[in-house]
Amino acid sequence: MAVIRDFAFQGAQMLLVLLLSPLLTGFVRKVKARLLRRQGPPLLQPYRDLVRLMRKEVVLAESASWLFRVIPYIIFAGTWVAASLVPTFRSGLLFSWSADLIALIALLGSARFFLALAGLDVGTSFGGIGSSREVMIASLAEPAMLMIVFTLALIAGSTQLSTMAAYMVSGEVGLRVSLGLALLALVMVAIAENARIPIDNPATHLELTMVHEAMVLEYSGRHLALIDLASQLKLLLYISVIGCLFTPWGIAPPNGGAAEIAVGVATYMAKLAVGGVLLAIFETSIAKMRVFRVPAFLGAALMLGLLGTLLLFVSRSL
C-alpha cells in the first residue's frame, strides 16, 4: 500500500514539474514586462507556444545527422528525470535515492553535453559560437556547483537531497557563514546555468550575443518545443533546489497526511512565485555582460563555493 502511495506521489511530482515549468517561465516574463511597464504576454503563452511548435512540421537542415534528431529527446528526458528527483512539496520521494545531488548535476551536465554537440552538428558558424561559449561557461559553472554541493553535503552529512532538506528543516543548522557563501554562489550558478541576464539573454535576437539561443538556432517544430520545455524545466529545477535547501519550510514529511501535503503544495507554489519575482527584478535591474566578463563572475562563484568548503574543513561549526 505504502509503495503504491509512494509511486503515486513520484508520478504526481513528475507531472507537477512538467506542467508547472512553462507557467513559471510565463510568470517570470509577465513580471519582467510589468516591471518595464509593459502589458507582457499572457501567463499561459508558453503553453500555447509549446503546443503550436509541437504541431508544426520539423524543417531539418540538409547536413543534420541522426544525432541531431535524437538529441532533443535526450535533453528533455535527462532534465525531466533530474527535475523529478528534487523534493518539491513532499520529501522522501520513492526514487530520490537513485541519484544524489552530485548525480543530478552530472545528469544536467549530460544534457548540456548533448546540446553543445547539437550546436556543432549542422555545421554553421552560429551553432559553433554557441557551443564553444556554452562549454566555456559550463567549465566554470559546473565546478562551482560541485563546490556548493560539497559545502552543503559537509553541513548535512549527506549528498542525498531528501536527507539534506530534512536536516536543513530540523533546526540544528542555524545561521552559518558557509551556508551564506553557498547560497550566494548557488544563485550565481543558477543564473548562469539557466542562460539568464547578465550571462546570456533568453529573449535576445542579436546573434552575436547569443549562447543558448545560438545552439538551438537550427531546431524547429517538435524538437524546438522539447528543448524549450527542457530549459523551462531546468529553471524550475534550480528554483526548487534553492527552495528545498535554503527555505525547506512547509515540505510535507514522507508520512504526512492530506493537510500537510496541501501546505506543502501551497508553500512550494509560493516559493516558486517568490523565486520568479526575485529573478525578474534582478534581470530588469542589471545589464548583460560581455562574454569575457563571464569567467570573472563564475570564478567568483567558484571561489565562494571553495571558501565555503574550506571553512567547513577548518571547523565544522562555521
Binding site: 535526450i74 535515492w97 537513485s98 544524489d100 548525480a103 553535503a153 552529512g157 549528498t159 536527507t163
Partner: peptide, 19 residues
C-alpha cells in the same frame, strides 16, 4: 544510504523511458 547513493540502472531506465 542516508549519506549518499547512486543507481545508474534506474537513472538509465528513467531517462530511456521518459525519452
Amino acid at each position: 544510504e542516508s549519506r549518499s547513493s547512486y543507481n545508474g540502472l534506474l537513472v538509465f531506465i528513467f531517462v530511456t523511458l521518459s525519452g
